[in-house]
């Protein structure tokens, strides 16, 4: 009960991704997600999707919530497509400036080949983004995340915010539960069946006030503890959890740079209308 089930892992196995250095994982993640966001071209999105799906499969864990999240994202987006279609049945056609009729309900609601491609592209793009996020979360430890962020030349203060945040999430979660339980004993009702929405909103403020006060008390103490051990005196910092880059790391980093380059080139070409807004065969 006190140990929340978080998706992020604290110890890793030894698959290909898991063994990479923190910096490599962070770079690969960012370059993949940026390229995925930048393009609307199935020729880029599909291979990217397949690669990242394989990455995801290699670190997949049997966790209930994961399945739920994937299904939830799929369902939400399919619903969205139906809405999009109802509002504008020829999105794809407008983007590609071509019209290939496949099916016709009436004069307005038609299905064009371009729109089908458009929806396929979009779903691969969104599920792909989710796959990238998930393999990243499943293959990195909080420590590697911090050293990885610093490794990407981001000042270590920001890496500290992330790692310290992850360090105190379990503690805060424990406080949150303890306070919630004690308030329930006092008589607040959080069950939607038993109390009105307004009452529940007020009940939540009763949990928030002590949670905030207890958490803020900590800030000064933690800051003291860090200052007493010389935090923030130098402009550079080393990380215990860092690893030396292996040959594999080097190769993956080159690949990440290549992806970044692709993304930049694609965005520039897109701005000058050199590449199609939506690629159709």
């Amino acid at each position: 009960m006190n140990d929340a089930k978080f998706i992020i892992r604290y110890s890793l196995g030894d698959s290909f991704l898991e063994k990479l250095a923190g910096k490599t994982k962070v770079l690969l993640f960012f370059s993949s997600i940026i390229l995925m966001m930048a393009s609307f071209d199935l020729r880029i999105i599909l291979p990217l999707f397949i690669l990242n799906f394989l990455f995801f499969k290699s670190v997949y864990q049997e966790i209930k919530i994961l399945k739920f999240i994937i299904i939830f994202t799929l369902v939400m987006n399919i619903l969205n497509f139906i809405l999009f279609y109802l509002v504008n049945p020829t999105t794809g056609t407008e983007l590609s400036q071509t019209f290939t009729l496949l099916f016709k309900f009436n004069d307005y609601y038609v299905i064009t080949y371009e729109t089908v491609i458009y929806f396929i592209t979009r779903i691969f793009k969104i599920i792909g983004t989710l796959m990238i996020s998930l393999w990243f979360i499943l293959s990195i430890t909080p420590s590697e995340l911090a050293s990885g962020i610093y490794g990407c030349k981001i000042p270590y203060k920001y890496a500290t915010m992330v790692s310290l945040g992850l360090r105190y999430i379990p503690d805060i979660y424990r406080d949150f539960n303890a306070i919630k339980e004690s308030m329930q004993m006092r008589g607040i009702e959080l069950d939607p069946k038993k109390a009105s929405l307004f009452k529940r909103i007020i009940a939540n403020t009763k949990i928030l006030i002590p949670l905030l006060l207890v958490s803020f008390e900590r800030i000064e103490l933690i800051a003291s503890a860090m200052d007493l051990r010389g935090y923030g005196q130098l402009d550079e910092r080393s990380y215990y959890s860092d690893k030396d880059l292996t040959k594999t790391d080097q190769k993956v980093i080159y690949f990440a740079y290549f992806q970044l380059l692709c993304a930049v080139v694609y965005i520039v070409l897109n701005m000058f209308n050199v590449v199609p807004k939506l690629w159709v065969l």
Binding site: A4, K157, T160, M161, V162, S163, L164, G165, L166, R167, Y168, I169, I172, Y173, F176, L190, P192, L197, R200, I201, N204, I207, L211, L212, S215, F216, R218, I219, E220, I222, A223, M226, D227, Y231, G232, Q233
Partner: peptide, 29 residues
């Protein structure tokens, strides 16, 4: 230094609170 460390810690603790509330602290409708 005092203010910088405290701000960093405040942002970290604030972010942790945000994450906990986002995942577990909702008011269900």
């Amino acid at each position: 230094n005092k203010n910088i460390t405290q701000q960093i810690v405040a942002i970290a603790i604030g972010s942790a609170l945000f994450a906990v509330l986002m995942n577990y602290g909702g008011i269900s409708i």
